[in-house]
Nucleic acid binder design. Structure first.
Lengths: 293, 293
DNA sequence: GCGATTCTCTGACCAAAGTCAGAGAATCAT
DNA sequence: ATGATTCTCTGACTTTGGTCAGAGAATCGC
């Protein structure tokens, strides 16, 4: 990683903690200790149960208890036993509490507006676009790639969306029955494997590996959810499949793809796959690729 | 301001305080109270005097004194009287203190690298570009526009760079002596005014207003430092000049510009200036504009 | 030289944030 | 039914961060 790149990230961190963080701490508390303000905010209009609040804010139970007592004595919240489980308790905002929350919301809005205020229309658009981009790419850090059973609910969900998308994008439509099959068993160790990418626990992409011989494997079912594209999900899934392939002792990976899937082809080429002559009769394929591991 | 824009800024603030801010607070302190860590960091390899530290970190003198005592007892710093002024004191890092500072530096680097690690080359480039853009545009909030004397050091500095740039960009070069003059007196109230844009106290742009008659003014000397472009500096300078013009009772503003200055022309048009027939014989001008206030 | 000012230090406070060890009530597992 | 577990509360305690009022030394303005 280039030092100048690291320096840019550090500069960004510095600026942003100064400009955003500092304001957050001083402006956004309305004369209340930060702990209470955060608690009020996290409780929200819908209320919450204590257990959830403790986990989310990482508070000691004793500390939370005292914070709640304080907010209660200010008339902002009510704490009540839950019906189903008498040990648990729920917090709910009173009318006064909701008014207070609305005030926080308004402050937060004002803060956001103050960022946009000195800018002209064009610059605002650029700032917002850049913020969205930073957001998307920072989120990539929270993406996890994991091996999963192809019969699991998450895998099914991915495959369903994958097939739906193929049907929409292929000129000829797509019928899984006519395509070369890849049964669950073929995608389960030791015959192969299935990999899922998750963002905050929700599946956003997948990929699979199927052994053809002891030395040759096939990559299949590569898919990224449209809302998660542009974050390198597919690349990371593919890299993970290659790692698994090496672990299984494979020497060569093959894959085929449809001409409608331009991004996929670009990815394969960038990752070192070379186009080769057709090695199977997959009816939906137009391009065949191969990579020596 | 559109609610969706405000929401985007708020989402960004939330994400960034979580991902950057939280790490900053927990990772980056090496088991030391935040106050001590900040102090160590601010002291830096070169050392600093107490007065400066208090101003920069906004600390109470008693509090600072105690923090220093603590760092001193850990063997990280030395505090010594200054020669010139016996009241003042300087802090310097010991060898151990410098090692500690280097460790902080390394941590900070590691943090930055962890942001880039999950990304591929192309995405890294996009993230860094977006970060730089956010940085530039957030900085716009710190830009201040102020009226100043055209003879002041800051004004002279701007004008010098302005003339140098004109000489480079005009096909014919530029000689101030051949251009229509605007003496200091003409740009000083009540005959006109001179406006400077500053970022963190350093001049980054300027503009001037010169009265032609009681109702007609001329905008002159519009310039933005190259390193500060794309943040709406010129627009804000121009808006300020228009405000001053209205205060002086002017009804019409005029300006002329050279064909090499494309961005300037785009700005004038966007701010409501209409191209008109030449109203003077400025030898370097190709376009003449006018706006009714 | 002298009073005003500047700079740092000390001691006495304070609030916020957080930790720890029980205790009491409710629920779960068997 | 009962012992283990879960959830919350209470009281005692600590650390961090910070304020305030003075005191003492050095320097400045004249």
């Amino acid at each position: 990683m280039h030092p100048a790149q690291v320096e840019q990230v550090r500069r960004f961190n510095r600026l942003v903690t100064q400009r955003v963080g500092a304001l957050d701490e001083s402006y956004l508390r309305r004369g209340r200790p930060l702990g209470e303000a955060r608690l009020l905010f996290e409780t929200g209009a819908k209320g919450a149960d204590l257990r959830g609040l403790r986990d989310k804010l990482g508070l000691d139970s004793g500390y939370l208890s005292r914070l709640l007592r304080s907010l209660q004595s200010q008339g902002l919240i009510q704490v009540r036993q839950q019906r189903q489980d008498g040990r648990r308790r729920r917090v709910r905002l009173t009318a006064k509490g909701r008014a207070e929350l609305a005030a926080y919301d308004e402050l937060s809005d004002a803060l956001a507006r103050s960022v946009l205020a000195p800018l002209g229309q064009a610059e605002r658009g650029r700032l917002l676009a850049a913020m969205a981009e930073v957001e998307r790419l920072l989120e990539a850090g929270a993406i996890e790639i994991a091996v999963a059973a192809p019969a699991s609910a998450d895998a099914r969900w991915c495959l369903e969306r994958y097939f739906t998308e193929l049907a929409e994008r292929f000129e000829t439509g797509f019928d899984p029955a006519k395509s070369n099959p890849a049964a669950d068993d073929d995608l389960t160790p030791p015959a192969g494997c299935f990999v899922i990418a998750r963002l905050n626990g929700r599946p956003i992409g997948c990929g699979a590996l199927k052994l053809r011989t002891k030395r040759i494997g096939e990559v299949k079912r590569m898919w990224t959810a449209p809302e998660a594209r542009g974050r390198g999900v597919a690349r990371r899934v593919l890299e993970r499949l290659e790692t698994e392939a090496r672990r299984l002792g494979l020497k060569t990976l093959r894959l085929e793809t449809n001409r409608a899937l331009k991004e996929a082809q670009a990815l394969y080429r960038k990752q070192g796959y070379k186009e080769v002559a057709p090695f199977n009769d997959e009816p939906y394929a137009h391009h065949w690729f191969e990579k020596r591991l």
